[in-house]
């Protein structure tokens, strides 16, 4: 019994140490220091670097959006904040900044919502994480069941619920990856009937349009706007939320649309 408590305490200590030493936190601090000195591009470059790390968090996307906004690039700020919102949907600061950036843009269609309706409230990670916790509890219950201390229905119930939540979370994350939000940046995007430069134009989306990506073919993305316009646009003028597709954006004064 005593050994178990020691193991739990050690695990919590390890988790806390990892959390405080998370690389993103240090990079955010470095970027914030540059921001405080008035070096907005420098701050953006630091956060942009962090956004390419596998341990990305909503804070990095959020701060990246703040930097883009302060640099006057509302569409890129929107793309970063949409990514932050996907990772932290209940954050009031993200909602406020999104509203502010949208207010600066004229003539853009209504922004598309999340890929799955309930993602406006919780993230796939939260749902799937809860599922994983329940599965962990179910695993412990299986051990107790083997020892004859609980009935089989206990682990079956908890495990079933955990598995269901885990699968729902994985599915939502998959849908989010398959149909990411994209934002038109730099200039208006021409929608075409086919993924080819010579195809007939079916419409345009002004810079700052928040759209859903329905497919991809080579360098072309199939976009659907909030008001139903649909067509292929070259991905040069479109930034997927949470994507730093071009590392050159991570340098001071980096290009807006890759090189």
């Amino acid at each position: 019994m005593r050994g178990r408590w020691i193991a739990i305490a050690l695990s919590l200590g390890l988790a806390a140490t990892l959390a405080t030493r998370m690389p993103g936190r240090e990079i955010v601090r470095q970027g914030a220091a540059r921001m405080a000195e008035g070096d907005v591009p420098g701050a953006r470059a630091r956060w942009c670097d962090a956004a390419t790390s596998p341990l990305v968090s909503a804070a990095i996307d959020y701060n990246l959006g703040v930097a883009w906004y302060r640099e006057g690039d509302a569409p890129r700020a929107l793309a970063a904040w949409r990514a932050a919102r996907a990772r932290s949907p209940r954050d009031p600061d993200v909602a406020h900044n999104l509203a502010l950036a949208r207010a600066r843009l004229e003539g853009v269609p209504a922004p598309v919502g999340p890929a799955v309706g309930w993602l406006a409230l919780v993230t796939p990670g939260e749902v799937g994480g809860l599922g994983a916790v329940l599965l962990g509890v179910a695993s412990a219950l299986v051990g107790r069941w083997r020892a004859g201390r609980v009935r089989a229905r206990a682990w079956a119930l908890v495990g079933g619920l955990g598995l269901a939540l885990g699968l729902v979370g994985i599915h939502a994350a998959w849908v989010q990856v398959r149909h990411p939000v994209a934002v038109v940046v730099d200039r208006e995007a021409v929608l075409r009937a086919e993924p080819a430069a010579g195809a007939a134009a079916t419409g345009t989306l002004p810079a700052g349009s928040e759209v859903r990506t329905d497919g991809a073919r080579g360098e072309w993305l199939l976009l659907r706007s909030g008001d139903g316009a649909r067509g292929w646009a070259h991905r040069d003028g479109v930034r997927l939320a949470g994507e730093v597709s071009d590392r050159s954006e991570c340098v001071i004064g980096g290009p807006s649309d890759g090189g």
Binding site: G125, G129, A132, A173
Partner: peptide, 28 residues
């Protein structure tokens, strides 16, 4: 004005989405 940068808070939680499959498999 826009809400400023974040230095602390729950937004620092690492997004689990890319690792969900592994996490669920590991827990199960």
């Amino acid at each position: 004005d826009i809400a400023g940068e974040k230095l602390v808070g729950p937004a620092f939680a690492v997004a689990l989405d890319p690792y969900l499959g592994w996490l669920v498999a590991l827990a199960a």
